[in-house]
Amino acid sequence: MRILVVDDEPLAREIVIRHLAAEADVEVAGEAANGLEALEQIAALEPDAVFLDIEMPGLNGFEVVASLTKPPWIVFVTAFDEYAIQAFEAHAVDYLLKPVQAERVARCIARLRTFIGRDQTLPNEVLKQLMREVRPAGPRRIAVKQGNRIALVSPREIIHISAEEKQVYVQTARQRYSVDKTVTELEECLGGSGFFRINRGDLVNLEHVRELMPWFSGSWRVVMSNGTELDVSRDRARHLKRELQL
């Protein structure tokens, strides 16, 4: 079983790694000191499971999970977050409390053994549900690929997200990022951040909508803050007007 250990404090990584060393079939595949490094390492190392600290600079643990399309098994690590712990309990998601204790780690690993390599479906749905509960206001940042690098974008900066010829782009006032996610995946990831799907290929940030004008045969058109005009499909127009309280 290959495991990635993510925590911004070196001492905190050290203690988890030391406890993991007691397990014969566990290999610590790597370490990451923040959310961004975690995303890079998960992509590069494809670990079976990640021990993921929640409070981290840049992207926190939840935002890391929200940025993953197919997350591996996640064991959250936290010092104190009563609200999140309730959610973990409710969804039977593994977590460790700091100070991290050896027998807790052993129990986690035992549980992971029953899942990993047994052709179980990955914990996608459970994690998505969990994210909606612990971060009802949506993530502070999302990670987007920019060439070989990963950039962090605050949802507030995003004007719209559009699919063009099988490639999805995230548009901010300054830049356009291509991402390897579908519009639907991004819509899910940004849930609660004030985004609205205006047609099959376009997701707009309602904060950046400047104008709404009638277009042909019952469809509408929105003008975004950067001047881009996008079509609103007929069945979405009604919901959009309600969303904008028109």
Partner: peptide, 14 residues
């Protein structure tokens, strides 16, 4: 709580 438990975690590691 954060401060306290994190400090204990560091101590435990050291």
């Amino acid at each position: 709580p954060h401060f306290f438990f994190n400090a204990l975690n560091s101590i435990s590691s050291l």
